[in-house]
Simulated assay, not measured.
Amino acid sequence: MPNKNEQISTLIELNEELENYFSNTIIPQLFVDAHLILRKFTPPAMRQFKLKHEFIGMHLEDIKENFRFPTIIENIKVVIATGKILEKEIQTNDLRWYQMNILPYIIRKENKTNGVIITFVDVTPRIRDLKEQERLIAEHELLLDTIAHDIKNPLLGLSLTVQVLKRLPEKSMEKFPVLLRNVENSLTDIKKVVNDLVDSRWGHQRYQSAEELVDLQNILEDVRLTLAPQILESGAIIKEDLAISEITFIRRKLRSVIYNLLNNAIKYTPAERHPEILITSYEQDGFMVISVTDNGIGISEEDQKLIFEKFQRLRLTVDGSGVGLYLVNTIVLSSGGKIIVESELGKGSVFKVFLKMDKGLPASV
């Protein structure tokens, strides 16, 4: 058994290692004891929160304004009391977003929490990137759909008109054949441009966005980050129960599906109540079923027939373009799946997305 001098020497070495770690880490970190006294902080935390060396030994209550996050003390107390890790996205008063992790500092011999270690990771750029990705995905899908349907249909009508004109008697219209030929040539050129654009964009997209094995849990984390401002403002409570998490799918498209369903669940909740959302997943008949249940305004039977149409908005008082569910439905159907909705006015909705797990089997939807 080591003698007292050896024990002291070991403690000094451990303390030096801890000091060395805190001095050299690039992550803002704080060490707060069980009495909410600030004991250590890393240089990045010192710069980020304008901390001073004389703050060490002070109660957090006296310096909480430096952290610009009003509930940090309550969060620390919860971790000390429960001994469980707390992870959440927070927005500070300077409008930046952080992934905050509060880890209990446990004394193993006594099996008690003697404080917490708090880390802050700036996720503001990631949130901005994810929001931009969602915007680009929506614009991209709408552009292709517009070209493929809204433009090609009038061109078909024009082509049929030309065919009718060609069968009309020319009589004395000497220039008629020339004019008709010019119209037909122009029509052919327009069709070629449209087809080339659609083919090249779709081909490029297929190359860039191949299917891969994705984890639904990771997709949900990305979506929660993207919607962090809305979640914070609405006080939304989001729970997950994932019986199955992995599926082969295009990552950005699955993220777009989850993003739009979760965004709607938050957006279409009455102002007088906080959104309560449950996301579940399970396997059924060769499909991964992703279910999103909310306590929102609900959808009438009549409106349920319209919600997947492009530019269809049920509430003009709510921000949006009316393309979210249209895109979700387009993505799901094109992958061989389906989406169904169960809803009652005033009592919320359940959206169930069925995604084929084995793309080699025929769809039984």
Rank of each mutant, 00 (worst) to 15 (best):
R315Q: 13
G157D: 10
M173D: 14
Q312G: 00
L216N: 02
I238Q: 04
S335D: 04
I127P: 00
Q312M: 11
D199P: 01
W202F: 05
T269V: 09
K175A: 11
L180V: 08
D199I: 07
V289Y: 04
S349Y: 07
E212G: 03
A228T: 14
N3H: 13
E17I: 13
I56E: 11
T161L: 15
M357F: 03
H149D: 12
K310F: 08
D215P: 02
D358R: 04
A236P: 05
N195I: 13
I297M: 12
I277K: 03
W97H: 12
R313K: 15
T293Y: 10
L355V: 07
L216G: 03
I137S: 02
K77W: 04
I250R: 14
P154F: 11
G337S: 05
L232G: 00
F69D: 05
I307N: 01
F308Q: 01
P125K: 13
F176M: 14
E17N: 13
A243H: 15
Q217P: 00
K305S: 03
R68S: 13
V292R: 02
T124I: 08
L14Y: 14
N153Q: 15
A34V: 10
E344G: 01
E233H: 09
D222P: 01
L51K: 08
S9T: 08
L232Q: 13
Y268K: 03
F311Q: 12
A148H: 10
V341C: 05
H59E: 12
L242Q: 04
S364G: 11
L216C: 05
L345C: 00
D196K: 10
F308H: 03
I76S: 07
K347F: 11
I127F: 01
S349K: 05
I237M: 09
K191P: 01
V162E: 09
M288Q: 07
I307H: 02
G336H: 04
L144V: 10
G57P: 07
Q205H: 13
I72W: 08
